[in-house]
Nucleic acid binder design. Structure first.
Lengths: 355, 355
DNA sequence: AATTCCATTTTTAACGTTACATTTTAACGT
DNA sequence: ACGTTAAAATGTAACGTTAAAAATGGAATT
């Protein structure tokens, strides 16, 4: 900018005004400025310097604890991001994707957060004890948390996972099922191999969503006289069809055979169904399978998936709006629980042998 | 930072060193600094100021000409973004999503580009004459273009659309089809209602991908003695199932009826199939439908879709890598054509009445 | 002719860092 | 005590912008 100012013998403020408040600069001079800028290869005010001066970047950060590529594998996460994008775009803000997974040491992980040039964060589904969250909070920027963790005084968006899980368990209990298995995604940090999670592992859960859903299943099964300690919970580290198949392979060898598998996500459930089919089991005649999330594919898969519906896009949009509201220093609710509801489709039915 | 320095009676450089080159500051002082920082609520060096000083942001921008939410609707675009994310993450960079669609005037649209605090751009599938591209180039930042436009001296990643389209057309001609229809996405800016695009419209195409695919179809059909001017090309502004159905409704009223519909994307093709089914036509017995892109759903839809496969994730990853390479001032190829191949599945077959 | 007014332009002073060069301090051997 | 060396800390000067207030100059008003 200085070059343009000197070339024309005007002050740098005039250049700034020409770009930011055109009406304050006479038309002839303004045109001259743009022309000279073009000639000198000046592309307009530097956004970084402007951000420093104005003390705002106009950027919202979405914080993930896993590599970004994981986020694009799961339809539910993509829909969430779409919602956030809608909200921030409407507010004229850009969107930065921040992944805290680069290094493995707490410090390295946190550095992604420390280095993010943003006005605020949307924290997406991170473990209670993950240093990323602490790092984000330490920046003292407006922050909204989606799904987990649930913290005092930090705006939150999510569903009542425990209640939704109870609804699903009740549905299967009502159908008459008695031998259950669960396919879970991460219960806590991946410091062990995937496999059956004993009650000790379950009690040490740091992922609140996982904890809540398992607690919901447990409450209903126990109430129906089915001891939770007899229900195998297979823990996968991630949420994909491939992992669901792996879990199913382990669970379907149980004897006597399970009649119902509760999966903590649709992706896992779809994988279970594939594995079951390969073993010659038909769903839901031989085995009922339930999912969670209601991704678009759940409605078109064969059989279509019984699952818990939640509006991921709206959740993202709400998170984005809450962040924008905070940036505008508007007062907001601290906790927004979105509705979730059981969607019964074709993947669940009466257990084999029932009338 | 100044506050921390004053509190401890040290210089600001010492604070800076404590964070950036810990080994240069004595351990005791370093600890004192972190402790005081914590107490005073100083969260470490401000990324914006650092970016200004270092003259780099460590951020890559992905430039879209449509609202971001559109990008999340199309699996092909999500996969592309996943690829870009993988590459930038590996290089330790963050990712900014930049949408140029906020205002409608060229200046307003360009402002999103002018205001993006990034080290470089990945331009994703934008019209030849869109001011966004010009704006991005004017910033003189390293830039990679994916799909379109194809510009001199700007690194490019994409497929040979014309050749891929020829392959698809040839497949259907070889099956014996003679009455074709085309469902296209945007040919040029949406300055008119969707509908049949006459040859004048087709000649004024500003979207190079559309132009190339149509040209590929035309070449093969003409060579087979089927005059292109008799082939109805329905132009949709966007790429979704809903738009595909709309197009099908128009095309399937033709008399004599078409036996094959070439869609420029899988989404459009899937919509066409839905509409055809609703009319009681069976695919491929009564009507062959072809897509383009090979999104995951193409393999599982019923019938599975004959389409052109391209690796969107790899395309994104390559774009990201090229950008990173430019930022490191490494030499790169200017044009990377990725392979594409015809994938014949169940949605195409011999025309009705053929042996 | 003096006064007021307005549009236009300038001055000044940060915003929070860090590269580079330099100075201070501590530690050591003779 | 003295010079030598390495370690630790500092001073200076940008990076490119803009908020706020002040200055300029000419036209309109009295």
């Amino acid at each position: 900018m200085t070059r343009v100012a000197e070339e024309l013998g005007v002050s740098s403020m005039t250049i700034s005004n020409a770009y930011n408040r055109p009406e304050r600069v006479s038309e002839s001079l303004r045109e001259q400025i743009f022309e000279t800028a073009e000639r000198l290869g000046y592309a307009g005010p530097d956004p970084v310097a402007r951000s420093l001066r104005r003390q705002k970047t106009n950027l919202a950060g979405v914080l993930y604890s896993n590599p970004l590529s994981y986020a694009f594998d799961d339809a539910a996460q993509v829909l969430f991001l779409k919602g956030v994008a809608t909200a921030t775009e409407e507010a004229g803000m850009g969107l930065v994707l921040v992944a805290g997974s680069v290094g493995s040491s707490p410090n390295e992980r946190a550095s992604a957060v420390m280095d993010a040039a943003v006005d605020g964060f949307v924290v997406y589904s991170i473990a209670d004890d993950d240093p990323l969250v602490e790092a984000a909070l330490r920046r003292r920027l407006p922050t909204v948390i989606a799904d987990q963790p649930l913290l005092e005084d930090v705006p939150f968006v999510g569903i009542d996972n425990e209640s939704a899980a109870r609804g699903m368990a009740r549905h299967l209990v009502d159908l008459g099922h008695e031998r259950f298995g669960v396919v879970s995604f991460s219960i806590a940090a991946a410091d062990r191999a995937p496999g059956i999670a004993d009650s000790r592992r379950q009690r040490s859960a740091t992922l609140r969503v996982t904890r809540a859903r398992l607690a919901g299943y447990e409450a209903v099964l126990e109430a129906a006289g089915l001891p939770w300690k007899d229900v195998p919970v297979y823990e996968c580290f991630g949420s994909s069809k491939a992992l669901g198949r792996e879990a199913a392979d382990a669970l379907l060898s149980q004897d006597p055979p399970l009649t119902a598998i509760l999966a903590l996500s649709d992706q896992l459930a779809l994988g279970v169904i594939e594995a079951a089919k390969e073993r010659g089991l038909s769903v839901p005649e031989d085995l009922s399978v339930a999912g969670f999330d209601d991704v678009p594919e759940a409605a078109t898969s064969r059989p279509p998936l019984t699952t818990v519906h939640q509006d991921h896009t709206k959740k993202g949009e709400l998170a984005g709006c809450l962040l924008v509201a905070q940036l505008r220093e508007e007062e907001t609710e601290d906790t927004d629980l979105l509705p979730a509801r059981l969607v019964v489709r074709g993947s669940t039915g009466r257990p084999p042998g029932a009338s």
